[in-house]
Amino acid sequence: MRESPRSPLLELTLLRAKEFLREPEAVFWTFAFPVLLALALGFAFREKPPDKLPIAVEAGSGAAETAASLARSEFLSSVVLEREEALAALRRGKVAMIVRVESSQPVFIFDPTRPDARAARLEAGDALERAAGREDRLKPSIETVREPGARYIDFLMPGLLGLNLMGTGMWGIGFSIVTARSKKLLKRLVATPMRKSHYLFAQILARLLFLTGEVVVLVGFGWLVFGVAVRGSLLVLAVTCLMGAMSFAGIGLLVASRANTIEAVSGWMNLVMLPMWVFSGVFFSSERFPEALQPAIGALPLTAVNQALRAVINEGASLGAVSGQLAILAVWGAVSFAIALWIFRWK
């Protein structure tokens, strides 16, 4: 029955891990939420065959034949409408252009500032010429190109992974510490011979335990469901995730270093994370922001994680190629960890 005591660092790490697993909400946010988000966005932006351009044909003599000729083109669909209905459909963008038949000749009615209208005009011209018996002199063969790594989901998955590293790193560490502080558990622990560094280090070790799970789940999901392959080496991916997680663990520790209540720490967390949700290129490229902001945006830890992850996953970048981003992460992590240790409130 008697067991020899394990090291305090191990006890603290195991307890932190168990504490997390016994919190169903935390487990959901860490593992299920990013997968669900990826699933939803992946389907919203899924690959579809190119849309057919809709064209309205004004009712009248020859309308039915014209509509049928247009519909024979693989890029067009057609519908016969009364004049007023057709104009209304054009205004609302439901059709790209209107074809009217006047004394056996087509009249194209469209807005040339709309790219889809111009494309519709060219396709419709071709389709009607062919229907009228034109023989094409050139017969270009068509090669369809779909570059993996260029789809929206390919852009999105690394961003979601980065977002998850940030969220779980900061919430995971911040909540746990502030809860312990607000319940005087920290005060009780520092009244024992426990080493303070063990406590903080255990938080980070436990974080690493879950990090592995998180990354495997999200990367595996992207690969299996959406075919988002990791083109770079898995080792470089692992190093990047590790650096990202450590960096956010440090920032989380800093944010939680003095807060006394969950409300306070939540406010600080959101204040720190919200700008990165917007600027760091999770859902859309951060290059859309003005040039003047780019140096600042590039220095944000989430931007660095996302850039490095995209380089490794989508482009197969080597460790050397992402070293700049990793350096940014190391600085964020080390500086915030040092400040956190210095100002940490144990009571």
Binding site: P5, R6, S7, P8, L10, E11, L12, L15, K18, E19, R22, E23, T179, A180, K183, K184, L185, R188, L189, T192, P193, M194
Partner: peptide
């Protein structure tokens, strides 16, 4: 004193013993 609600009694004691 409040101990962590998600820890069990024996886990709490093991931690305190370990230090």
């Amino acid at each position: 004193t409040q101990f962590h609600e998600k820890w069990t009694v024996i886990e709490t004691l093991r931690l305190f013993r370990s230090v």
